[in-house]
Amino acid sequence: MAVVKLQRPKLNFGEKIYFGALIKGFFLTMSHAVKSLRGKSVGAETLASSGLGVTMQFPEQRWDSHLPEYYRGAPALVTDEQGRERCVSCQLCEFICPPKAIKIKPSEIPSDDPWAKVEKRPLEFDIDMIRCIYCGMCEEVCPEQAIYLRKDYLITGLKRADMVHDKKRLYEIGGVRVGLVNKWNELK
């Protein structure tokens, strides 16, 4: 690696005695304080602040209506319009998941099931929300468009076990998502 020698800036007398910069600094900090107290901080509007600084006061004020389209909340499984669980437990999300939050146990769909031709579905699908980093890789990698990051962000629990979303919970959060993958419909 090349060594870059930096020349220290030559300071003139005014800069050397430091007071000018100090006073400028005081004005800057104070102007921030004043703006903050008046509810006029930069970005206070767009961030829907509570009137002090740019902070939103959480339990009373919610971000929900401001959530952008691309917001990445809790990952969840979705069903298609016919109520079929989209997930075929290919385990790609388990593979890609950077913090290894996903655990899948695949199983064969019994032959008397209406969707027996899909052959495979998850028996267990657990996402450890303590581990999950909401990166959205699972959504990106899913070939069946079965896992989506929903806008739920209040994932709380009193026990570690509460923080593991099982298959049932994941479908509760996920709900139905129509369209996208047609290969399992009647044509096939």
Binding site: T29, H32, S41, G43, S50, G53, V54
Partner: peptide
């Protein structure tokens, strides 16, 4: 400090 830093 919070006020100076645009916080609450």
């Amino acid at each position: 400090s919070a006020v100076i830093q645009d916080r609450v």
